[in-house]
């Protein structure tokens, strides 16, 4: 049972103390990019980097949510507290979403050591949501030992999770494609651990051997990626998965590694925030100017890249005037 929030403490303090309601409210603030969020995100900076962030990605229906559920069982047995960020798609037409990943995790609903938050992708491509990286930071700050991130059922190029997670688990299932699929570029390349789920199905062994032979063609670290078989619904293979995750944590996730990725993450956040501002500026820019540029492109007088450069220059000017 969660205690009634004590309003005499700030949201930041209550978040850092691990209170569930404060974590939930902080995630909402960050997701909706409120004024309070900026304050929170600054306040948590000194408390980041303690949680192990484990990313799960793979095609829809491969069993990501069920596998996350099974992994939580094992992590709890190992006395780790867990935060889960589960991303589901938003409708491109209405913006609405059905967030149903946690149905597969319902056995953990009342465990205070497990906090699951469903996020809608809100039009963001790449398998996550616009604010997913910040939401993960908030979970980290609340003292979760492990933060599991489940992406939208991803196709072949949703590799954003690679920059955010310490350990990247890519899930496949039998019968999804032949060995040419396995040598294509994309999500398989970002894996630290490859999992063939639904290993009780026929063809599972063939999928495992296809992935292994794909890896054998690669060089360096990629050749050492383990290929595990799991049956998430029975728990088969989950101990080995938890061991593999822990091994990655111990061996590959050095302090140096983490610092480099943390910097990369802040860079990414900065780039995203900048891109967001540019998009807002473009929406606000005088329509006639844009129409004029479009007309020039349509008439073949101006290349689209040149038009973009010109638009960018136009966007910069009002900012300069503000600064003057």
């Amino acid at each position: 049972m969660t205690a009634v929030p004590n309003n005499s403490n700030s949201l930041l303090e209550r978040l850092l103390s691990g209170q569930a309601i404060a974590l939930a409210k902080s995630i909402t603030a960050v997701e909706n990019d409120t004024a309070q969020a900026a304050e929170l995100l600054t306040g948590i900076q000194p408390h980041l980097g303690r949680a192990l962030v484990v990313g799960f990605t793979g095609p829809p229906g491969a069993g990501k949510s069920t596998l996350v559920n099974a992994l939580i069982v094992e992590l709890r047995r190992r006395e780790q507290s867990v935060g889960v960020v589960a991303v589901d798609p938003s409708s491109p037409l209405t913006g609405g979403a059905i967030l149903g990943d946690r149905i597969r995790m319902s056995e953990h609903t009342r465990d205070p050591g497990v906090f699951v938050r469903s996020l809608a992708a809100r039009g963001h491509l790449g398998g996550l949501s616009p604010m997913a990286a910040r939401v993960i930071d908030v979970m980290d700050a609340s003292g979760r030992d492990v933060v599991v991130v489940e992406t939208v059922g991803a196709g072949q190029s949703e590799v954003e999770i690679a920059e955010i997670a310490d350990v990247r688990v890519v899930i496949s299932a039998p019968g999804l494609g032949d060995d040419v699929q396995a040598i294509k570029a994309g999500i398989l390349e970002i894996a630290d651990i490859l999992v063939v789920n639904k290993a009780d199905l026929p063809l599972a062994e063939r999928t495992v051997s296809q992935l292994k032979s794909m890896l054998s063609l690669r060089e360096g670290e990629m050749a050492e990626v383990p290929v595990l078989s799991t049956t998430a619904t029975t728990g088969e293979g989950i101990v080995a998965l938890a061991d593999a995750v822990e091994e990655r944590k111990g061996v590959a996730v050095t302090a140096e590694d983490r610092a480099a990725r943390a910097l990369q993450r802040v860079r990414r956040l900065l780039a995203d925030a900048t891109a967001q501002r540019v998009r807002q500026l473009i929406r606000a820019v005088d329509g006639a100017n844009v129409d004029d540029l479009c007309a020039q492109v349509q008439r073949g007088e101006l290349g689209v890249d040149d038009a973009a450069a010109r638009l960018l220059r136009q966007l910069q000017q009002p900012e300069d005037r503000d600064g003057a």
Partner: peptide, 25 residues
């Protein structure tokens, strides 16, 4: 969903304490 809302959907058979935890998180 079609009205633009984000809907957390659970299956049936939830207990009161489940609903409280779900609404909190």
């Amino acid at each position: 969903r079609d009205a633009g809302m984000e809907v957390v959907y659970t299956g049936p058979w939830q207990e009161i304490a489940d609903v409280v935890a779900l609404a909190t998180q």
